[in-house]
Write a protein that binds this DNA or RNA. Structure first.
Lengths: 157, 157
DNA sequence: ACACTGTTGTCAAATAAGTTGACAAAAATA
DNA sequence: TATTTTTGTCAACTTATTTGACAACAGTGT
């Protein structure tokens, strides 16, 4: 069983992924990261993290996904022995990374095919490799493979 | 300026991405999607979406990222003329897609290099292409390119 | 040991956000 | 038109978050 997911659906998905600017409450951050609300407020006071300062004045703190990742990373370092300030420094060396990964997906997601027990993600052309597309092959629990395949897209009318 | 991000950082990031099971409140979903809280409760009553039913009994609804994507997609269809039930059906045909994309990244993220105005994401080897790694090249506002490059990783001792 | 700073838990009072149920108004459908 | 589906709004109630304070604990340096 092999079925290509229609381009309209993918277009909508890409649009949704590009926005993806949701916010979470402090309780949600605490639940997801294991860092207590008390700590989060303290880290904010120290300037290590910042809640989103949206236009609409809010009475409760709201955090972006970026901050969620930031908190997770800081906590990851702290749990393995780093001091808080060292953990923050290490974390902030590479902000923008998660943003870059999202841009990569949003830019390169070209097509999607459902197969028996997984997906094939069409990532489009690779430089200097004409007439082929790169596919990420996901099948059950196997590791994801990258494969170059002939691009049998029917000619546009 | 060209600097490879250390493997330790990437390892931590992959672990964080694999979990990534945060939950959002109904107000957060409403803000992010433009769908009113009233609608979300109604959609729930109709069985179109479900809040997370965690172990800890909660008094407030909490939604997964999956549901956020679901709501965004339903709203996308509704806004272009589909009936609610048709939008739901179209949306649910391809659940698991966002999960698959995340697994792809988590499986294949091999390395990261910061360059002048962007990143190079090392995605590892491509089947039948020995001694090369596939890189996603992100530079400023340019479209992300895929490139096969020699893999100059120093030999393991 | 002692003082000091940095960090975290907990409590209390106040405010904001979310819950349900109901009524009514639109909007879609028969 | 009549009927059902969908949505907004209100009210009374419950839960979550906010701030500020006090205390405890860990680490650092004297």
């Amino acid at each position: 069983m092999r079925m290509e997911i229609d381009k309209d659906f993918i277009g909508r998905m890409k649009k949704i992924m590009q926005k993806d600017n949701f916010l979470l409450g402090i309780g949600d951050i605490a639940r997801a990261t294991g860092v207590s609300q008390r700590k989060l407020r303290y880290w904010e006071k120290k300037g290590y993290i910042s809640p989103d300062d949206g236009i609409e004045e809010r009475k409760h703190r709201k955090y972006s996904y970026y901050t969620l990742a930031q908190v997770s990373m800081i906590e990851s370092y702290v749990k393995t022995g780093f001091t808080l300030s060292a953990a923050v420094e290490k974390t902030n060396q590479h902000d923008q990374v998660s943003q870059a990964i999202r841009k990569f997906i949003s830019d390169r997601l070209t097509g999607l095919v459902t197969v028996d027990n997984g997906f094939e993600i069409d990532l489009g052309e690779v430089c200097d490799v004409p007439n082929k597309h790169l596919f990420a092959i996901l099948k059950g629990n196997e590791d994801t493979k990258l494969v170059l395949k002939d691009n049998n897209v029917p000619v546009e009318q």
